[in-house]
Computed example of a mutant assay.
Amino acid sequence: MPELDPEDNKLVVLARASRARTAAAEGAAVRDTDGRTYAATTVALPSLKLTALQAAVAAAVSSGAEGLEAAAVVTAAAEADEASRSALRDLAPNAPLHIAGPNGEVHTTH
């Protein structure tokens, strides 16, 4: 399990809390280059489908974020899907992406 700094650990906590609050498939959180955090969950509407990370990136962009420092996804899946990774890389090609299980334990960092 990778050791996270406190700010990245906060992202995991926010992502896990968002997921638990809505019983969503995934929760995600991102931190922008100004230190602001944005959390979101999977969106599954008839007319709109977003992964949790896509939703968190969209929230950051719509709030004026120009870049991201780090991201975390809490999911039962082994990895974040390509759509999620692509959304993060659009705004932050080198930001670490932490993948944690539902218990909040980070098992992978990209």
Rank of each mutant, 00 (worst) to 15 (best):
V57N: 04
R85S: 12
S86A: 15
L68R: 03
E82T: 10
P2W: 01
A100S: 10
E66V: 14
D34Y: 04
P6R: 11
T108R: 15
A28L: 12
G27I: 02
L45P: 03
V13T: 15
T22M: 04
S62I: 07
L14H: 00
A29Y: 01
K49Y: 10
A20W: 03
V61Y: 02
G64W: 08
A15E: 01
S63I: 05
D90E: 13
A87C: 10
R85W: 01
S47E: 13
L11C: 03
A77G: 03
A60N: 04
E26L: 08
D90T: 11
D34R: 14
L91N: 04
P6E: 14
L97I: 03
P6G: 13
L53Y: 04
E105L: 15
A87V: 03
H98Q: 02
A78C: 01
L88H: 07
A78N: 03
G27E: 05
A77H: 13
R89S: 14
A17Q: 13
K10N: 12
A60G: 09
A65N: 07
G27M: 06
D32I: 12
A25C: 00
A87F: 02
R36D: 06
G67R: 02
L11H: 00
V73A: 06
P6N: 10
T51Y: 12
V74Q: 06
S62V: 10
R31P: 03
N9Q: 15
A78H: 04
K49N: 11
T109M: 12
R16S: 12
T33V: 15
P2N: 01
A52C: 06
V106F: 14
A28Y: 10
V13C: 03
D90F: 06
A65W: 00
A39K: 09
Y38G: 01
A70V: 04
T108Q: 14
V30N: 03
V74G: 07
E105G: 11
P2T: 00
L4V: 00
E105P: 04
A59D: 07
L68K: 05
